[in-house]
Structure formats: C-alpha cells, structure tokens
Amino acid sequence: MVKKMIGIEGSFAIAEAVKLARVDAVAAYPITPQTHIVERLAEFVANGELDAEYIPVESEHSAMSACLGTSAVGARTFTATASQGLELMHEVLYVASSMRLPIVMTLANRAISAPLSIWTDHCDAMAVRDCGWIQIFAENAQQAFDLVLCAFRIAETPAVFLPVMVHIDGFYISHTIEPVQLLEQEAVDSFIPEYRHPYPLDPDRPVTMGAFGPPPIYTEAKKAQEVALRASKAVILEVWQEFSLLSGRHYSPVEGYEAGDADVLFLIMGSFSETAMVAIDRMRAKGQKVGLVRLRLWRPFPVQELRQTVGKAWVIIVLDRAISFGGRDPSVLKSRRRFIP
C-alpha cells in the first residue's frame, strides 16, 4: 500500500494527493506560492493522467464560485490559493460552508500586502478563521500529502458535508523538496469512496440551493451549520484513525512534542513547529524542561485536546505568524497556566 520514499516538492506532493483522490474538477487562478500545485494538476489533466475538468478562471472569486457549481452537481472539487487570492474569494468561502459543499482547498499561507510580500505568515489564514470551513495545518510535505487525502474523505462524509482547508506554509512547504511516501492508487480508492451529494443540482430532480432566508430561517440554518462543524471532529478523528492503519502515520487534533513533563510549552501551527523541535531538542539536552504543542486542527477548535496536551506547564509561549492589529493578543491565543482557549 505504501510506496517507497521519494524526493518531491511539497506542492507536487499535494498535486499527487489530489490526483490519487480522483478529483472531478479543479478551478483555480495562479498565485505565489500556491501556483505549483495547480500547474501540476493542469499538466495531469492535459496529459491524460487525471480525468478531470480543469477550469482556468479570471480570478480567485471566480475560482471559488466555479467550485461551488462543480461541487453542487456532485463533482469532487479542489482548488488552491494564497494571500490576496484568498481575500478576493473571501465572500464565496462562506457560501461554500453554508451550502455545505465538500470542497477541498489548499492554502499556501502567505502574508497580505502592503508592502507587497510573497513570504509566509498566517494573516491570510486568520482572515478566514470564522468562515465555517474545517481547517487543518500541515507541518511538512508528507503531512500535506496525507492531510489533503484525508480532507476529501472528511469533507464528503455525509455527517459532515463541509469544505476543508488544508494550510501549508508558503515556500517552507510549498517549495521545499523533501522525502515523501506516496500511496498506491488502490489503497486511496478504498480509503476515499465515490462522492455522492444527496441532493445534487440535477435537471431531472430540480432543487434550490442558497435560497432566500429571512431571520427566522437564517438563525436556524446557522445553528445547524455550527452543530455540523462541531460534530465534524468525531469524523475527523475516525478518518485519521483509519488513515493510520493505511499509512502508518497518525494524526491528532493537537499533537505534543516533549510536552508531557514540560514547564514551558511553545504553541505553534504549521511548519515552524518542526524548526521549534530542533530548538527544544537542544534545550532538553541542557536539562531545560521545554516542550511543544502543535495545533493540527484549527477549526473546529480542539479545546479538550489542547487542555490535555498542555498538562502541567507553567508557561505557554505562542509563536503566532499573524498579527491582530490593535488587539491585545495575537490571533491564536496568549496566556499562562490555566488559560481558557
């Protein structure tokens, strides 16, 4: 089931995952540092390796709008973006989650202008924190490959039916070549069943999506959406458990590193946590009781798991890659012992 380790760029590993998931539709607009993902997918479609509709669009707003349509007719749908592109598709993200369309998107995290910056931070991720998508952070190319595969399975589980965003740090993951174990097509086929929308857009069985909702209906709809997003955690845990049987790699909503007996903990999301592990190893070698908490699942927020992993630490240092202008705390959280996330 598991193939041998190969050297591959993070973006291309993600494209391999999308191909293995047999997506039906990709609609995307290029933006650094995400471009390699969809360029590679366009190649796959062009050379016949991937039987999918590749929709080149004129903007990210159109990319996500096209994804709404393809997902709504029952096509497995993928897109990728970053930074300004994510900002441009912002309003459509809410439509995707509210209409419960299981789109999978990779976000190659990048700073937001100005001054113009193509480099990594999490300001783009934080700007879409509350858009109702399931959001997962990867720390390296292997995780990016694995978590994108899992994202399709999670999103399309009937009890979930929500879009999933997999965050990868721009350049640190998207443009880094590193060892990755891919999976056999048969293994992926058994892991990700066919996507079936229960009420697809179909001329023979007409439905209405996104109809007008006056306040009494809107309130009920938002409640249903919130309940679904919170309930998705149980499915995420199941899917990751099943994936570990397939691949030998296990994922959890919150993962510790040397966290058990630590007095001081770093709290980090994304690729920077691996760099932090190097520092923690050095400090541990000097006898300092430091450790790391990595937030893998960002939405729904894993409160219980975070409390458990934090354990008895006295200090939590949050290394946040986003700034909340005018706010006292960074976007993730900053607190000492007994914090309440």
Partner: peptide, 19 residues
C-alpha cells in the same frame, strides 16, 4: 410552520420545486 435547525436539510437545500 417554519422548519427548525434539526429539520433543515444540509445547506438548506430545497428539494421540492414550486414552494
């Protein structure tokens, strides 16, 4: 009577035309 959140179909999809 309007439907409650438990009764709404996912994404508030309307399956019967002509409402």
């Amino acid at each position: 009577e309007l439907p409650t959140w438990q009764e709404l179909l996912p994404g508030c999809v309307l399956t019967k035309p002509g409402s």
